[in-house]
Design a protein around this nucleic acid. Sequence first.
DNA 1: GGCCTCATGAAACAAACTTGCGCGTATTGG
DNA 2: CCAATACGCGCAAGTTTGTTTCATGAGGCC
Lengths: 163, 163
Amino acid sequence: MAKPAIELDSFDLAILAILQKDNATPQRLVGEAVNLSAPAVQRRIRRLEEAGVIAANVAIVDPAKVGQAITIFVEVEVISETAELLDAAKREFSATPEVQQCYYVTGEADFILIIIVGTMADYEALTRRLFFSNNNVKKFRTFVAMDRVKVGLTVPLTQPGEA
Amino acid sequence: MAKPAIELDSFDLAILAILQKDNATPQRLVGEAVNLSAPAVQRRIRRLEEAGVIAANVAIVDPAKVGQAITIFVEVEVISETAELLDAAKREFSATPEVQQCYYVTGEADFILIIIVGTMADYEALTRRLFFSNNNVKKFRTFVAMDRVKVGLTVPLTQPGEA
DNA sequence: GGCCTCATGAAACAAACTTGCGCGTATTGG
DNA sequence: CCAATACGCGCAAGTTTGTTTCATGAGGCC
């Protein structure tokens, strides 16, 4: 949104690939990996951050280790799809900490949520708050994750050819 | 997995909350925010990393900015749920870069995938490779994301009370 | 061909991270 | 109830890393 789209050469892609896996990598090592000096790497990283290509630098916390062991998917179907009501739903979902991810999708469902809770009781309380007390929710389907096979936000990086 | 579970006091939770949002925050500032000295913060972070509470430190890349603009959900239903076939599926999904996330779930579906591609043609090619050529895939349902309302892996942090 | 722009690398500088040490506090055992 | 131990803290010094400055060379445009 900030910048429409910036040019990404193979250096940028190589740097992104590294930082996507571990952004604590010293710039010196990144530089060696991509055949660039540390300052050059530093400048490129800054540019990528300003352009929004790098949206954030975060630590990934293992939910199970902090007592939030249950991952749940919810497909939500709404009654009315007016822009106003959709925005209200988006805002409410976004503001809920247990909602890790929320997508507005096509197809039989309207929203897909990924939720993290400590116990099923917590989830039940959450459904009451988010769905049952919301007049615009027609129905919702719950899937409980038995195994988090692969979890990440890593983006496949290919050539910079824009879509 | 490494350590079964370590004690997390309110300092640890406060530190995690900060690093989950921005792990480039200098330890000095983290220390000020939680009323601890920088070395103390540093020791706690190291402990959290060794215990696996902090699973990784990564840069979040905006898919749209690198030409991977389409997010897709897929519910996959398999024919046979033998451990062997499930493991094979898990390995194949995990090894596919376009598959950002993969969960093994209860309910009508068996797997839920979150996929990122540049074009629908890419997705079509992917379905051919992952689903149509896999004899164990009974059916799959596709949802295309029109809006990534909220995307993150942020874990809600409450008191350390284990579940 | 000359000028301008841009990105690079080397070096100097500043900031952050890391380690060792002494101290206070909580815990355990007598 | 008191002593010995273990744990984690803060302070300060050393080291690594990140950042800025500057001069040079490559490429595009008159």
